[in-house]
Design a protein around this nucleic acid. Structure first.
Lengths: 344, 344
DNA sequence: CGGATGTATGGAACCGGTTCCAGTCGAGAT
DNA sequence: ATCTCGACTGGAACCGGTTCCATACATCCG
């Protein structure tokens, strides 16, 4: 309805000058700029992003691929991404892609390959070779958050050191004198060693071996869905068995840990007196559960991913030249009341 | 890189014909269409959505405004929206807007008012007059999901009947013989009577009055954040007080109910023997907690919202002429083990 | 068999910006 | 005084599609 030509006419300048004045590119006399700006304000002019991106090739829009929105970690990351992108003037287009399947192919081939996004942030998804290649071919920077091997080739990666996290959590239990440990791992931990759950499991096994507790790799690991009911069911089954119970559990995520806490209580065990439990995430409910956990900041990771992507797009490149390049994002152990010294 | 002109040249037709063949609009001979299609496939042609929407004015993109992504209900709605939009060939641009503030204004004035979205779906947000007006002015249909008065004027509304939900849950407790009830309401329930939490509270009060239990409006209501820790803290405080404890709690959401269950157990009370608890949502964890709840289907609501919005946009208008217009979305009471007859 | 109707196609305008290129003009340099 | 340079501005091309209009031809009708 109201195009830049209208603004130009009203301000008595050419389209070219109006464009320069409003976008801030090129030389425009101060007086002219003001005239154009008031004219624009007067008729309520808003640039058409379509027209602009048609010619510039930039959309000010980032595609985010995420497998769940209703798992705490992912939801939190998403919020961090959204807020940061918004304040940078970018839109966020959401692609909720879980596992494989035709939907996933559609997203990559149809949606992402089109020119609507300037870059892609993938959260906790392993991109396949051909998916990466398709994006590469269209010159779309890709940032992967979480999972995978840190130093590997391919897209820019970002995330915590999940293996170190697993080690840290396990060592905490070991230092408390526990010797009968169990790891409630995420499903696929053994099958996909480079996934988040795989790396955490690896860290657990490392710590166990180092303590001489798993000479023949018999440190117990049970896989389950990384949700509260997942942890509940797994723990119920595990702790319900006759024989010598474990005295400590390393849960692959806080949600799993919550489920395990509830299962233990349901079985009449007291946490931490009969069972110590440590999780990872720093879930907002961890305090309420008194859960000892290895904290990370998913929203901070979202922010970091946005920073990185904007840098790849050449925004604020002058600002800070790769301040934290490559280093894993921070984590820290927070000890609460779900862990204590092993019983004698 | 590869434009429609290239396709046209390769197929030996004009741009106009190529466009018609690929978009399916207008008359094109079957043989020609095939030729164009193979040509397009050969060079890997993909339409530029920017160019297309520049001229058609449609972006195939829907803006979604949502206050949280990390509360179960909202996350679930978001997933439903995403999946449904995706399969309809639409993108979803996310605006995580909570409360008021400059960010919110930016979203409405800068992002949504631009021409990047064809319509807006607002989930659990009260749109202000001027916000609605701004969208109206730009001819953007708006669908509001959740909250508000069903029959009111203004944008298309969609949602469950929250007042009936509150009544239903409360009546369930009353029928079990409980007389000392408490309602853990969402914050702002009293202050904003048309909000989700306000309507649920209203339903609770209605049922209480009808049962003659609140002659002077003294049915107890405590407000809290609608999260698990919120329910936990509120219940801890409520149940920790000396005096006659309530025997039943109606929690405004399942997450609040989970917190209340945990608080009760922490205080040595048994659920349901000492305390019956009913929630609302049909949270995926409800089964694990054995929670009696009034179930709704947030992802189904997301789907319904998309259907409605597409109808407003004139897609599939022929298909079904307003099948469920106006009727509140379905809910049902699911009785589990968190409620039982009141003690004598 | 002439005119009406309809299908198939191409040419060209257009959507609303950005940017290249060229031209004007004033100021500082020589 | 002339030249040079840089700031400022306008004209026009262009991004990549869609769609209006005109034209060509085949078909159908009375």
């Amino acid at each position: 309805m109201t195009a830049i030509a209208d603004v130009a006419r009203l301000a008595g300048v050419s389209k070219a000058t109006a464009s320069r004045a409003l976008s801030g590119r090129g030389h425009v006399a101060e007086a002219t700029r003001r005239r154009v700006e008031t004219a624009a304000a007067e008729i309520g002019y808003i640039v058409s992003p379509d027209a602009a991106s048609l010619v510039t090739g930039r959309t000010k829009n980032i595609g985010v691929v995420i497998p769940f929105v209703n798992r705490w970690f992912f939801g939190e990351v998403l919020e961090g991404l959204e807020r940061t992108l918004l304040s940078a003037g970018y839109d966020l287009t959401l692609y909720n892609v879980d596992g494989a399947g035709p939907d996933r192919d559609r997203v990559f081939e149809f949606f992402l390959a089109r020119k609507r996004v300037d870059a892609v942030i993938a959260v906790g998804v392993d991109l396949a070779e051909h998916e990466l290649a398709a994006l590469e071919r269209r010159d779309k920077p890709v940032v992967v958050l979480g999972g995978g091997e840190a130093g590997a080739l391919g897209p820019a990666r970002l995330g915590i050191d999940d293996r170190a996290v697993g080690q840290l959590a396990t060592e905490h239990l070991l230092q408390l004198g526990h010797t009968r440990l169990v790891h409630l791992a995420g499903d696929g931990a053994a099958a996909r060693p480079l996934s988040v759950q795989g790396l955490r499991r690896h860290g657990y096994l490392d710590a166990m071996s180092a303590a001489g507790l798993a000479p023949r790799g018999r440190a117990e690991v049970v896989e389950t869905e990384m949700t509260m009911p997942g942890g509940y069911e797994a723990a119920l089954q595990l702790l319900g068995q006759p024989g010598r119970r474990p005295t400590a559990v390393f849960a692959a995520s806080d949600e799993v840990a919550f489920g395990a806490i509830r299962a233990a209580e349901r079985l009449g065990m007291s946490v931490p007196h009969d069972l110590s439990i440590v999780g990872v995430d720093g879930h907002e409910y961890a305090e309420m559960f008194g859960l000892t956990t290895v904290e990370q900041s998913p929203s901070g990771q979202g922010r970091a991913a946005v920073d990185l992507v904007l840098r790849l797009l050449g925004e604020g490149a002058e600002a800070d030249p790769l301040p934290d390049s490559g280093a894993p994002l921070p984590t820290r152990l927070v000890v609460r009341t779900s862990t204590m010294r092993a019983p004698l």
